[in-house]
């Protein structure tokens, strides 16, 4: 079990010796990682570093081969996806995954619903209108709230999915390359949104876009070959010779 006790702030997430192996290939290899409550952390790393696998483990999509993942003191490796979601982890996927045939309003209602079992959903009475309206405002979709979400532009879909994750009111938000395919202006607005969310959520961002990383980052973690390479402020990480080596190395190969 974990021995290192948190000192100043409470740790919301603790990962020890996490290994995920797919037919012998180790996507994550003995990873140690932790997040403080209220932290905004950016995880970077070259392709194949294990960033998305990390999120897969955190959301129950992938079962680890070895290791321990504690979220608010509970072991996530034994829970199913929906249980983890209800426990308070929300995930924004790399490519937007919204319900295309439902409109933004319905997409948000579905995520906002406080009681997600079958019969409360069928018979429960709930008034989510005000919350939906407020969220639509936040994600700038007030005027497109009644068209099928499949017809939104790529950036709008990304925003809608961020809105859906916020609607779940998670304690920990996982954002997987949420500005991919966005215009510069949209990216900047997303950065501001994340900054404001960081005031009362713990956020883990996976990102490739360095301009964006610089905009939002407080503390950066670099993954390489499934393990932790280094951690620190954006400037520290940027100037770390190992990080430069890893990125340039992967560029040479690519």
């Amino acid at each position: 079990m974990l021995t290192a006790a948190p000192i100043a702030t409470r740790q919301i997430l603790q990962i020890q010796d996490l290994t995920v192996s797919f037919d012998g290939f180790k996507a994550l290899n003995g990873l140690n990682f932790s997040l403080d409550e209220g932290e905004l952390r950016v995880v970077i790393g070259p392709n194949g570093a294990g960033k998305t696998t990390l999120l897969d483990v955190l959301t129950g999509k992938v079962r680890p081969t070895k290791g321990c993942v504690l979220f608010k003191g509970k072991d996530l490796t034994k829970l199913k996806e929906h249980q983890i979601s209800v426990l308070g982890i929300g995930r924004k996927f790399q490519t937007p995954r919204i319900y295309q045939n439902l409109n933004p309003r319905e997409n948000l209602e579905l995520s906002l619903n406080p009681h997600k079992e079958v019969f409360p959903t069928l018979f429960g009475r709930r008034d989510l209108r005000d919350k939906v309206d407020a969220l639509l405002e936040t994600i700038h979709l007030v005027h497109k709230d009644r068209i099928p979400a499949g017809l939104l532009s790529h950036g709008e879909k990304q925003w809608l999915e961020i809105g859906m994750v916020i609607a779940q009111d998670p304690d920990l938000l996982l954002l997987d390359e949420c500005v991919a395919g966005m215009t510069d202006k949209e990216t900047e607005a997303t950065g501001e949104l994340i900054q404001s969310l960081a005031k009362n959520h713990t956020i883990l961002v996976i990102e490739h876009d360095m301009v964006f990383v610089r905009q939002i980052a407080r503390k950066v973690t670099v993954l390489h070959q499934g393990a932790l390479l280094c951690e620190g402020s954006f400037e520290e990480v940027k100037n770390d010779p190992r990080v430069i080596e890893v990125y340039l190395g992967s560029h040479k190969r690519g």
């Binding site: 199913k80 929906h82 929300g90 319900y99 295309q100 045939n101 579905l110 779940q168």
Partner: peptide, 30 residues
Amino acid sequence: LTSGLFGRILVAIRDDEPRVRFSGYDPTGF
């Protein structure tokens, strides 16, 4: 059954069942 939130979840299950789990629902019961 097909209108209201319950019906929306049915459609969501049809279109992207794994995603529904990450929204916090267990599709089995539905």
